[in-house]
Structure formats: structure tokens, C-alpha cells
């Protein structure tokens, strides 16, 4: 399993055993789950209180289903670690962060400098997402805080 290369959380790294979305509902003591692109993230919503780690797999960076899965979990109030794994590349990092991911374990480790530059690239965002960033319209109308 790939190492966590970037993490934007202060709590301890979660290393709990990972189960599938299908199995998670039945395993009352499971606290970590891995979402594949076709999985239904809303199946996890009844169990949010025992979830500490959600890993979302990107078998190919061109498959954006995991972006929706992440936002859906954040919109439902999930505050634990949301880790992107698989084909995670430098140029997807900013969008992944905006969708609520706060940890990255790319299959192939990323160039540190390129990754830091990509994460710092955007001065603002046009639309609200799951990162709490005030959208441009809020900044324009004095709602940005």
C-alpha cells in the first residue's frame, strides 16, 4: 500500500484495517473504509460517527467519480480523514483539496516542489466546494471571512 505523502491534518495518522463499502455496514467495529468509483458513498451516511478514515481510490485520474463521493461525505458532515489513493497526480491536487480530501497517498510519489506549487496555485475559487474556501462572489460582496 502506498505511503501517505501529503497530509493536512493535525490528528494522528489512522492505520485501521480497511474494509469495502459493502462490508462496512455489517462490521460494527470497522472504522476505515475504501470507496471504489462505482460505490454509493451515501451507504456510509448512517455510520459516520464511527468512521475515522475514508480512502477513495482513483484507478485512473480521468475518472472523477471520487470527487463527487468526497464532497457528498463532507456535505453530510464527515470530518475524519479523507484520503485520495491510486492515480493521484500533481495537477489534480488542487481540485481534490477543494472536494474535501485532506490526505494523499499517490501510487507513484509526487515531486514535492511541483506538488507544493500546484496546491498553492489558485488565488481564489469561483464556486463553493468542500474546503470551506469562500467563493469569489462572497469575497466580492463582503462575505469572505
Amino acid at each position: 500500500m502506498a505511503e501517505v505523502q501529503f497530509r493536512f491534518r493535525n490528528d494522528e495518522l489512522v492505520e485501521d484495517a480497511m474494509v469495502t463499502v459493502d462490508a462496512f455496514g455489517q462490521q460494527a467495529n470497522a472504522s476505515a473504509v475504501r470507496i471504489e468509483p462505482g460505490d454509493e458513498p451515501r451507504d456510509l451516511l448512517p455510520h459516520l460517527e464511527r468512521l475515522r478514515l475514508v480512502e477513495v481510490n482513483f484507478p485512473a485520474f480521468t475518472d472523477g467519480r471520487g470527487l463527487s463521493a468526497a464532497r457528498i461525505l463532507r456535505e453530510a458532515g464527515y470530518a475524519g480523514e479523507l484520503r485520495a489513493v491510486g492515480d493521484v497526480l500533481v495537477d489534480q491536487l488542487a481540485a481534490l483539496r477543494r472536494c474535501g480530501f485532506d490526505a494523499f497517498a499517490p501510487e507513484v510519489p509526487l515531486n514535492e516542489d511541483d506538488a507544493r506549487a500546484a496546491l498553492a496555485r489558485w488565488p481564489a475559487a469561483y464556486q463553493p466546494a468542500a474546503d470551506g474556501r469562500a467563493p469569489l462572489w462572497a469575497l466580492r460582496h463582503g462575505q469572505g471571512a
Partner: peptide
């Protein structure tokens, strides 16, 4: 235009 520009959820449709 503004909403859809760099929309993070819809950049890999």
C-alpha cells in the same frame, strides 16, 4: 461561466 470555471467536482467528467 463563473460557476463552471475550474469546478473541482466536474473536472474529470
Amino acid at each position: 461561466r463563473q460557476w463552471s470555471t475550474f469546478h473541482p467536482e466536474f473536472c474529470a467528467l
